[in-house]
Design a protein around this nucleic acid. Structure first.
Length: 410
RNA sequence: GGGGGAGUUCCAGAGCGGUCAAAUGGGGCAGACUGUAAAUCUGUUGCUUCGGCUUCGGUGGUUCGAAUCCACCCUCCCCCA
């Protein structure tokens, strides 16, 4: 099976400009494609992960990837599918974030000078020096405001308001494609399906200015069976940076996906062969727990490496099925100052470990029976623990049913 | 430029001088049930040294007392140009 057919079989492909031509490019290693990443935070998220795996798959099939860091476009902010305007970032923040992205991507993607190796570019290099009038004359004439306003991605903003700044995002993105088409022979753009209209802007611009064809392919957005975006917990992203989302928490996120979503995730995100996945398709009921383990393990391995994946799996098994080690669960070293007369109160312990943001919430948690320390349920908000207990391995705090944390002192 | 409307706690959205830390729904968290799933049910959901303290776009003002009234400002929406 060739790569394009495999992508389809995995259910990834959403839209393509021309199925025939895109398949030809990709299957024969003729594509030099780019995927853009706006650096609005200092870490990539699980949301970006889907496109990163796409990049890797296409690279493995012999195509040349360009990871485009949006150092320039981030200064504008993509309004696609958003109901509010993004916070404006300073140039320093953006540069810092771009550096972080670069480091993370290098874990998956093979960058270098060779023919199949990936390039990394930053659109700040060409966007930031554009001259307004020149730009208007060069590309402004190629865009129809009428069409732009009709674009699906602005739909929500037509009610809530769309600033001119953000409206220009599409033009900047189109310019990127146009620029790279000429500068580095980039003939294809890939991205999430929410980017479709922005992406078409680029092919249109290239056709108008240069009379040449270029292509786009979007992949489906990763949503659960309810239609909610995946890769978020309580509105917070699941990060790829181990300091933001520990490998254990990352593992747990995927270990906990719903029954209805496991196989889809495995198909989309892992690199397991399709035959193997098809065989798992028959699993049902509690058997799916095995599939969830596979999913969590495979993804953790991709993002954090095999050693971390082993640790996370071992820790999770230990915690949920008894025994096992507590060594690799997220932990906090308590400073001696948190202890008073050699003790720390239950509420202070929860806030010190970042398990509860306020004393009130910690108190509530305890009163509602959601705290277990070293296997013993704590229901007294005045409970206190001896400093000596935190020596060595420390104590294991369990918040609710699934959040484990270790607190220790040196 | 002219006219009309709106900004409320994580989100949506009530409240329109005291009984408002603010209805209701969603989301979150916790409990029960379970398979570390889903669905369902229950509780909870500003902070606090539990005396209080700070919230209803911003700044001032009226009042014993304001999310609620007034002035100005900011932001957004709609209609006309």
């Amino acid at each position: 099976m060739q790569i394009y057919e495999e992508l389809k079989a995995r259910g990834l492909v959403a839209q393509v400009t021309s199925e025939e031509e895109v398949a030809d490019l990709l299957n024969n290693g003729k594509a030099t494609f780019y995927i853009g990443y706006d650096c609005t935070a200092d870490s990539l998220t699980a949301g970006h992960f889907v496109t990163l795996t796409l990049m890797k798959r296409l690279q493995m099939a012999g195509n040349k990837p360009i990871a485009l860091i949006g150092g320039g476009t981030t200064t504008i902010g993509d309004p696609s599918g958003r109901t509010d305007m993004r916070k404006m970032l300073t140039l320093e923040d953006i540069n810092h974030n771009a550096e972080c992205f670069k480091r993370q991507m290098s874990r998956f993607i093979d960058f270098g000078e060779g023919p199949g190796q990936a390039m990394m570019l930053n659109n700040a290099d060409w966007l930031l020096n554009l001259n307004y009038v020149d730009l208007l004359r060069e590309v402004g004439a190629c865009f129809s405001v009428n069409n732009m306003l009709r674009a699906e991605c602005y739909k929500q903003r037509m009610e809530k308001g769309l600033s001119f700044l953000e409206f220009n995002y599409m033009i900047m993105q189109s310019y990127d494609f146009y620029h790279m088409f000429q500068a580095v022979g980039c003939n294809m753009q890939c991205g999430g399906n929410d980017q479709w209209s922005n992406m078409l802007g680029g092919t249109e611009l290239i056709r108008r200015k240069l009379g040449k064809d270029s292509h786009c392919m979007t992949i489906n957005l990763l949503t659960d069976s309810q239609g909610n975006k995946m890769g978020k917990t309580a509105g917070n992203a699941v990060w790829l940076d181990p300091n933001r989302t520990s490998p254990f928490d990352f593992y747990q996120y995927w270990r906990n996906v719903g029954d209805a979503d496991v196989m889809k995730c495995i198909r989309w995100l892992t690199f397991l062969p399709l035959e193997e996945i098809d065989a798992m398709d028959k699993w049902e009921g509690s058997q799916l727990n095995r599939a969830k383990e596979i999913l969590a393990y495979e993804l953790t391995k991709l993002v954090h490496g095999g050693a971390e994946a082993e640790k996370a799996q071992e820790t999770a098994r230990g915690l949920f099925t008894g025994g096992g080690s507590t060594e690799h669960m997220p932990s906090t070293e308590l400073p001696a100052a948190r202890f008073e007369n050699g003790q720390i109160g239950a509420i202070a312990l929860l806030t010190a470990c970042g398990l509860c943001p306020s004393n009130a919430e910690a108190r509530r948690l305890i009163q509602q029976g959601g705290l277990t320390v070293n296997g013993r349920k704590v229901t007294d908000i005045a409970a206190a623990f001896d400093q000596a207990d935190f020596q060595g391995e420390g104590v294991v705090i369990k918040k609710g049913k699934k959040v484990f944390h270790r607190a220790y002192i040196r």
